[in-house]
Amino acid sequence: MNTEYNFAYLDEQTKRMIRRALLKGVAIPGYQVPFASREMPMPYGWGTGGVQVSAACLVPDDTLKVIDQGADDTTNAVSIRKFFEKTAGVEVTEETAEATVIQTRHRIPERDLTENQILVYQVPIPEPLRFLEPRETETRKMHALEEYGLMHVKLYEDIARHGHIATSYAYPVKIEGRYVMDPSPIPKFDNPKMEMAALQLFGAGREQRIYAVPPYTKVVSLDFEDHPFERGGAQQACGLCDAQDAYLDEVIMDDAGTRMFVCSDTDFCRERREAGHIGEMGMPITEDAA
């Protein structure tokens, strides 16, 4: 740990401001609390909101995991992990079960989270109504009046045009029967997992909003009686670990169009392969592999 930084990088006044916003966010599930987002040593869009929320939550004996689209080993995830290793001196891990705080970009881990874990989402556009109504003054009023008709019109237009609800990520949810919330650009496959035992916190740095979903809170994906929400998901098994019910990434293998599908959650896939599950294109893990 580099002692030239304050613990977890941010100054104390900033952390207090974020902490107060977090508590109000937890008390009003799904409501976007404005906060005075700071410039972070990384560009907007790289998780400045999530990083600020994590910084305000971390304690010295936390174990941090950072994932980007499910993977622990992408530039974004590695950088943020190193950032907190350096500024907060916390332990880091790639194993979902080991982590106490998990910062994520666009995925929820496949493994069920526990009461002792916090999931921090990086959010680009926190306002679910923003692409339907650009004015903040208006969307704020719409939330106040619980006026979400426009969102249903959007989903209806999807059905009129495509025959089904074509929104496949950042699929809007209603929290505890009150606020419509953007779950961040997670695939809609992950939406049903949001009713979980862990606390979920959302940070949008550029848009300066924080919101939260407490454990065991009702999270309903918006739909229609005759067009119920469908989780979607893989039509096949993971090529490496043979998982049947995981969210898969498509990987192009060569110029001839060969493709393979692999788990987007790298830790989940590794764990399964170590347990002896082998997919069609996988091979057993050995000591000198890697």
């Binding site: 304050n6 613990f7 977890a8 104390e12 952390k15 207090r16 902490r19 977090l22 508590l23 937890v26 008390a27 305000a56 939550c57 971390l58 304690v59 010295p60 009461e115 606390l199 939260a212 407490p214 454990p215």
Partner: peptide
Amino acid sequence: PKDSAIAFRVALDVMAR
């Protein structure tokens, strides 16, 4: 920095539960 972080985590945890 550390004492307040630990205290906040407790405050957050009880508010969330």
